Structures are given as structure tokens and as C-alpha cells.
Simulated scan of single mutants.
Amino acid sequence: MKSPTLASFTAQSLEEGFDEIIVREWEPHLRLDTHTHPFDVSAHVVRGEYWLTVGEEVQHLKAGDFFRLARNVPHAELYGPEGATVWVARAN
């Protein structure tokens, strides 16, 4: 599968009903304890890696991976030694 561009990610996300697109740059070794967001997320990891923990499930996400997370779902994040760049579409 061909990697998306930010423009194609944005277009598809808006078509799917997401209303905000941001580029997040996360610092190396950053740990975000369990928290929630008041919006749905569709995201594409562009650079680096991180671990997303939802309940007992830990997902190791690397550059090229996509994931979705529903609003108000408790989760934690741990970023790898390079940090990460993630394109994030939000449905507010």
C-alpha cells in the first residue's frame, strides 16, 4: 500500500466526517498517563514509534501504522527514543 501524503490523509479524514487535522510532534521517551479525549481520533504514525495502552491491550505503533480511538476511551501513551510524528484527525 502506498503511503499517504498529509494532503490525502486530510482529504480522506474530512470525507469520513473528521473536522480537525493536526500534526503532533512528540518528544522522545514521553509518557502520558491514562487520560481521555472528548473527540474521536483517526491517526497515522509518520515517524518514530510509541505504545498505546487501552485497558490491558498494548499496541506497538510504528511509522506507517494507522489507528483509531473513540472519544472518552481511557488510554496511556509511551513514546520511543526518537519521539514520534503523528497526523491526527479529530471528530469533535
Rank of each mutant, 00 (worst) to 15 (best):
P74N: 04
T34N: 10
Q12W: 07
N72E: 14
R71H: 06
V58S: 08
E57Q: 13
H37Q: 06
L52N: 12
G80W: 12
A7H: 14
A84E: 08
E57N: 07
K2A: 09
F18M: 03
E15P: 00
G64W: 07
H75Y: 04
R31K: 09
P81V: 13
S8Y: 08
F18W: 01
R24W: 08
W87K: 11
F66G: 00
I21C: 01
L78Y: 08
N72I: 02
T34W: 01
N72Q: 14
L69A: 03
R68N: 14
V41M: 05
L32E: 06
V45R: 11
A43Q: 07
S8N: 01
E57T: 15
F18G: 01
V86H: 02
A76E: 06
Q12A: 09
H35S: 02
H29F: 10
L69K: 09
H60R: 15
V54I: 09
Q12F: 04
R31H: 12
T36L: 08
P38H: 14
Q59S: 11
A91V: 00
S8K: 06
L32R: 15
A76Q: 00
A89Q: 00
R71E: 09
F66N: 07
R31I: 13
T85N: 02
P28T: 04
Q12E: 15
I22W: 02
M1G: 12
P28A: 01
P28V: 00
V54N: 02
D40F: 04
N72P: 04
T10G: 02
A76C: 03
H75I: 04
G55E: 03
E27W: 03
R90L: 12
F66I: 00
P81F: 08
D19K: 05
L14H: 15
G48V: 00
R71L: 08
E77A: 13
F9H: 06
R90A: 11
R31F: 13
P74F: 07
G48E: 11
H29Q: 09
Y50E: 07
V88W: 08
A89G: 05
F66H: 12
F39A: 12
V86F: 00
G64A: 03
V45W: 09
E82V: 05
I22R: 05
P38Q: 05
Q12D: 12
A70T: 11
T85K: 06
H37G: 07
V88F: 13
R90Q: 14
P74I: 01
F67C: 09
L52G: 04
E25I: 09
H35K: 02
A63F: 11
G48A: 09
P28N: 06
F18K: 00
F67W: 03
Y50A: 05
L6W: 04
H60M: 11
T5L: 05
R68D: 11
E49T: 15
T34D: 06
F9E: 02
K62I: 10
T5Q: 07
I21G: 08
D19R: 10
T36W: 00
R90I: 02
A43L: 04
H44P: 00
F67A: 10
F39S: 14
V88T: 14
T5F: 07
S3A: 12
